[in-house]
């Protein structure tokens, strides 16, 4: 059991290590000019020095904080409205097109509009990200409510549960797995939009700002390093949400 687990982790490390080695080999062989592809060691060194002395940690936290703010707004509005929409088929049909339309509209296309409405400050970045993430939450929650198992609702009804009890005891749990799918997708999307917003809506800090600055100063080790750190942030958020999901919605996919 223990060794099976260890071997699983060992295999999981093969891909990343191989990528690192290929990167290093390409660098050593000089296949790509070092100006465009610094060595991985140099990149990691850059992450280290910028984290310890250059404020990359602060940027990381700023981006995380903005993402979480956008996410919380999206969830706070998305979950209740999603439940209301999902509970009424007519209501859902009537706004299905709007949800799909705005879900398909690139969130980045909204930047100028949000800048006009909310100004150049932090909130306009958070608002765009929240808007994009909100639609994802909304859609998934509504979908979860609509696809609640009718038998379970009927079972509660036949046991004499009131409408309110059915909602609280059955509907809520029934849509929880799909809600979590929505929340997980939403937090990833919020991060994407925040990083892009930090690049292109004037910003004083954040990983997006650091990436753009590295490009302008042609500091490629820092550019690669910041991309890596952004990846770690996105992956970490996803991992945390997967963990939460497994813990809170333990029956998901099994019932």
């Amino acid at each position: 059991m223990q060794s099976a687990r260890l071997s699983r982790y060992a295999w999981m490390a093969v891909g990343p290590l191989a990528l690192f080695l290929v990167w290093y080999a390409v660098h050593l062989a000089g296949l790509v000019t070092p100006k465009l592809l610094p060595s991985p060691v140099r990149t990691l060194q850059s992450v280290w020095t910028h984290t310890t002395t250059g404020g990359m940690g602060a940027d990381f936290l700023r981006t995380l904080w903005r993402t979480l703010q956008a996410f919380v707004i999206a969830a706070a509005f998305g979950v209740p409205i999603g439940i209301i929409i999902g509970a009424s088929e007519k209501l859902y049909r009537s706004i299905e097109f709007l949800i799909d339309f705005f879900r398909s509209t690139p969130a980045t296309a909204m930047f100028p509009l949000f800048m006009i409405i909310f100004g150049l400050g932090d909130f306009s970045k958070i608002a765009v990200a929240a808007f994009a993430a909100w639609l994802v939450v909304l859609f998934n929650v509504a979908y979860g409510v609509m696809n609640a198992r009718q038998t379970r609702i009927l079972a509660a009804k036949v046991m004499g549960a009131s409408r309110a009890r059915i909602f609280k005891d059955v509907m809520f749990y029934e849509c929880l797995p799909q809600t979590f799918v929505g929340l997980r997708t939403a937090v990833s999307l919020a991060l994407v939009v925040i990083v892009v917003a930090e690049m292109f809506i004037g910003s004083d800090d954040g990983l997006g700002k650091r990436i753009i600055d590295s490009q302008i100063t042609f500091d490629l080790p820092q550019l690669y390093g910041t991309i890596l750190v952004s990846g770690i942030l996105g992956y970490g958020l996803n991992l945390i949400f997967l963990g939460l999901e497994k813990w809170l919605v333990h029956w998901s996919g099994r019932a």
Binding site: R149, T151, R152, A155, D169, V170, Y173, L176, H250, W251, R254, A255
Partner: peptide, 8 residues
């Protein structure tokens, strides 16, 4: 039964 019991 799979859809009648509450899995939570």
């Amino acid at each position: 039964y799979r859809e009648a019991l509450f899995p939570w």
